[in-house]
Amino acid sequence: MARKTDGMQGREGLEDLFAAMREERVPPSDALMARVLADALAHQPRPALPVAAEVGAGVAVRPGLWRRLAGLFGGAGALAGMGTAAVAGLFIGFVQPEGLSLLGDAVLGTPLETVELIPDVDMLFAGN
């Protein structure tokens, strides 16, 4: 009985000691804080730089496909005009409108059936 009473007192006293130790913190020294902060800054990743800054620093940025094509044909306007002409030619060749044939006959004076873009080989030997 007496031992149990002692034990209870011991536990209660222990809780008091814990409470006192919670109050009595062990503070870090200023030197430790400085060392930890120095480590933090030394190992901190560098923030990402904006693209403009990278160009200024000499890092080449490769232009896109459309920008390179436009540059090749003299600008975006010229590239758009060529595209339009190509689409129109494809349309005319595919549809073959009647009015266009009559216009060709009037201009050439004879019906145009075929056009030989490469002369026949026989013409090369005709002079012999």
């Binding site: 503070p27 430790l32 930890v36 800054l41 923030p47």
Partner: peptide
Amino acid sequence: YAAGDPAAARALTLRLVPRAMG
């Protein structure tokens, strides 16, 4: 901190070191 903010490094140091030290 990982994004490069030095103020975050200082705040974490002030917050965590005393607890870890105790």
